[in-house]
Simulated assay, not measured.
Amino acid sequence: MIELKTPAEIDKMAVTGEFVAEVLTELRGIADIGVNLLDLEHQARRRIRERGAQSCYWDYAPSFGNGPFRNVICLSVNDAVLHGLPHDYVLRDGDVLSMDFAVSIDGWVADSATTVIVGTPDPEDTRIVRATEEALEAAISTALAGNRLGDISAAIEAVATAHGYPVNTEFGGHGLGRTMHEDPHVSNRGRAGRGQKLRPGLTLALEPWFARTTNRVITDEDGWTIRSADGCQTAHSEHTVAITEQGVRVLTRRAGEG
């Protein structure tokens, strides 16, 4: 069941979105050669505690995970792209790090992800990171009242195809609001003009993620971390958006972005 939000409720989600954006901006600045993933986890915990927010990840136990998640951020390195379990790993020159962060403030959720290249970037890594960002902007520009859910999916797929990246459909975007995962599912592949009509009040997490050479994934022994099946590099970008009468509103936009 899809729950449409009122303008006042979207304003409350925007407060959460601003905090999520601030934390991801801080972590982008911290992530560097020699930094341990656990340092990023601890910084995120500190910011959540200071703000009086609640992590959407802590104790989360979906069907695709191995028991409750006991961290507050997903940190995925190189061929890992989703649900990366923070662990004792020191970032190295050239690592590609995806950070996915979702919290609730006063009962309203926002969710966002960003990918950074640590140290010296490989041109192909830069290209795939930028492709996910381009796909996200294409999806956002299509998330307009009166359009269809398939228009968003098709916009993401078109960018992937233009860059030569295959698209996985097992994991994608989703509705959110009172909880992190609500209906509808937003596939990263689809047909324009198909699917439900987009209505004002619909709030979505749009999250294109690509792997260079495969659309197949495997799960680590930790039961959480999703990797490309062939070990190729990956990237992930995500924003929370609200569809309004005035157009699309991006609730997790970081300062200086777009």
Score class of each variant (00 low, 15 high):
D183S: 10
Y165M: 03
N71V: 01
M99W: 09
S153E: 05
R127T: 04
L82G: 04
V118W: 01
T240Y: 08
A61S: 15
M180P: 00
A80Q: 13
K12H: 12
D106W: 02
H236C: 09
E26G: 01
T132Y: 00
P184V: 05
Y89E: 15
G52C: 10
V23M: 06
Q54N: 12
F210G: 04
K5R: 15
P68Q: 11
E124F: 08
V35L: 05
A205L: 13
R47H: 02
V241F: 05
H174Q: 12
I48Y: 08
V81Q: 04
G34P: 04
K5M: 12
Q196E: 11
I140V: 15
P62E: 10
I48A: 07
H236M: 03
L198H: 04
I226W: 08
V96W: 03
V248Q: 02
L38P: 00
A53P: 06
V186Q: 03
F101D: 11
A8M: 12
G67D: 12
P86Q: 09
A113W: 02
K12Y: 09
T234Y: 05
S228Y: 11
G223Y: 14
D122Y: 10
R216N: 10
H239D: 14
V159C: 06
E238S: 13
G94V: 13
L4I: 03
T132M: 04
H174M: 14
G17S: 12
I152W: 02
P166D: 05
L75E: 05
D111T: 04
L251F: 06
T132L: 03
I117F: 01
E18H: 12
V186M: 10
W224H: 14
H185L: 09
P200D: 06
L75H: 06
Y89R: 14
T213Q: 09
G150F: 08
L91R: 06
D88Q: 12
G247Q: 07
T214W: 02
T16G: 06
V250L: 07
G231D: 08
T120V: 13
H239P: 01
R189K: 15
G201F: 04
W108M: 13
